[in-house]
């Protein structure tokens, strides 16, 4: 039956549950990243990997499409130097993109990678990618930005084409101010 202490106890208990769920909402952010890594959701690949010497599977060739995309607020010019390359699974390749800051101010960009089909994402290995860091360019400056990668020979046989899209965002407001200062 009702008694004041019990009421207070259940109220406080449930208040803590609510607070914990608020925290849980934030905990979902890193959990989501883990989930993405496991499922390859929307083709995210994170972090650098050690270079692995695969036995190159010369019996088949995978076509890799390299696509440059820009976000609305990004006035730079950005393009893939090769739109398409062929490689044998396990073979390491370096490819390049070309970016040019056509504006009159120093800016910092961040490329966001995305791979489709999403299933292929977990087989793409990169040791070097311009998308790993923010890339600053001074006003009017241009440069080539590189990516070194391979596709693991474990790639399922039915995937013959892998598309890698890099979307360039204006990350100036998220940039380390020292980095921007170094441009001049």
């Amino acid at each position: 039956m009702s008694s004041k202490p019990n009421v207070a106890k259940s109220a406080i208990k449930h208040l803590f549950v609510a607070l914990a769920m608020f925290g849980f909402g934030f905990a979902l952010v890193p959990l989501y990243d883990v989930f993405c890594e496991i499922t390859g959701l929307n083709g995210k690949v994170t972090g650098t990997v050690e270079k692995v010497d695969y036995t190159v599977d010369t019996s088949r060739t995978v076509t890799v499409q390299l696509l440059a995309s820009k976000n609305a607020e990004m006035p730079w010019r950005f393009m893939a130097l090769q739109e398409q390359i062929d490689l044998h699974p396990g073979e390491w390749k370096q490819i390049g993109f070309w970016a040019s800051n056509t504006t009159a101010s120093d800016m910092v960009s961040q490329a966001v990678p995305s791979i489709t089909p999403a299933r292929a994402a977990e087989y793409v290995q990169k040791t070097e990618c311009f998308c790993f860091q923010q890339q600053p360019l001074a006003a009017g400056e241009s440069k080539q930005m590189n990516m070194v990668f391979t596709i693991s020979p474990e790639l399922p046989e039915d995937i013959q084409t892998v598309s890698m899209v890099y979307t360039l965002f204006d990350a100036t407001e998220f940039a380390d101010p020292e980095k921007v200062a170094k441009l001049n």
Partner: peptide
């Protein structure tokens, strides 16, 4: 409600 309203609060806080 106790389980999900705080998550909504978390989302709008983000």
């Amino acid at each position: 409600l106790i389980a999900v309203m705080p998550v909504l609060a978390g989302v709008v806080t983000m």
